[in-house]
Design a protein around this nucleic acid. Sequence first.
DNA 1: CGCTTTATCAACCATTTGGTTGACTCTCTA
DNA 2: TAGAGAGTCAACCAAATGGTTGATAAAGCG
Lengths: 119, 119
Amino acid sequence: MQAAGSEDERLDRAFLALADPVRRRLVARLSRSSATVNELAEPFELSKQGISKHIQVLERAGLLTRTRDGQRRPCHLAPAALEELTAWIDGYRLAAEACYRRLDAVLATMNAAEEAKDE
Amino acid sequence: MQAAGSEDERLDRAFLALADPVRRRLVARLSRSSATVNELAEPFELSKQGISKHIQVLERAGLLTRTRDGQRRPCHLAPAALEELTAWIDGYRLAAEACYRRLDAVLATMNAAEEAKDE
DNA sequence: CGCTTTATCAACCATTTGGTTGACTCTCTA
DNA sequence: TAGAGAGTCAACCAAATGGTTGATAAAGCG
């Protein structure tokens, strides 16, 4: 299952969700195991409502899913959504690195030509 | 060279910088080659000042660097900063996937025990 | 049925973001 | 030196974030 909206909107929400140290700590915690809101809120000095809001941000971004277990609503990290982000970043990172390698090759060629001329 | 501040602050700025479709388009454009502010602004309907602000956000996040070339101030993508982001995400994504695999193994064991009991 | 636990909703407030316009700096060039 | 081009700074505004508190729902327990 995937968060709603266009790719742009999904990436907006996902990157925005990660642009906060509290939410990143929540992701880190959930990468070890699923957890409830109260369990997630415990290490923080924020109110439970505040944590609940952060969790909703992560959920709207598709970075976590929630199930029902009696009174509890455990949160589970969604690795596929994280993978979509790394795929986006890596596409452009690799393109840029390739671009710089081409530039280096051109500069090397020019230097070689320059030295040849000096001889 | 790396953006200033703690790791948290750097990740805040970097993820926030990517949480905007305009800035992601700038990153995509710069992954093909370096470019000036005017070149970057051309495909957008925003004012040049608006684009300049977006570029400053990316620069403060360490995602691009700028050089001086006469009147121009070309922008260059910084692949190392992008790599830091994918490394952060992948660390937790892989942990979560490993966690789910362990859970699957436990559930499989329980199912096997259950079926053995039913016989 | 009442009480506790878990969690969300609603209203509110301070701060930040994203956009504009206008004035300004800096650099090259005629 | 005067002017044009590239880009930034400053002030302003509308909208969204991040946090709070108080009231509310929904599920389990005595």
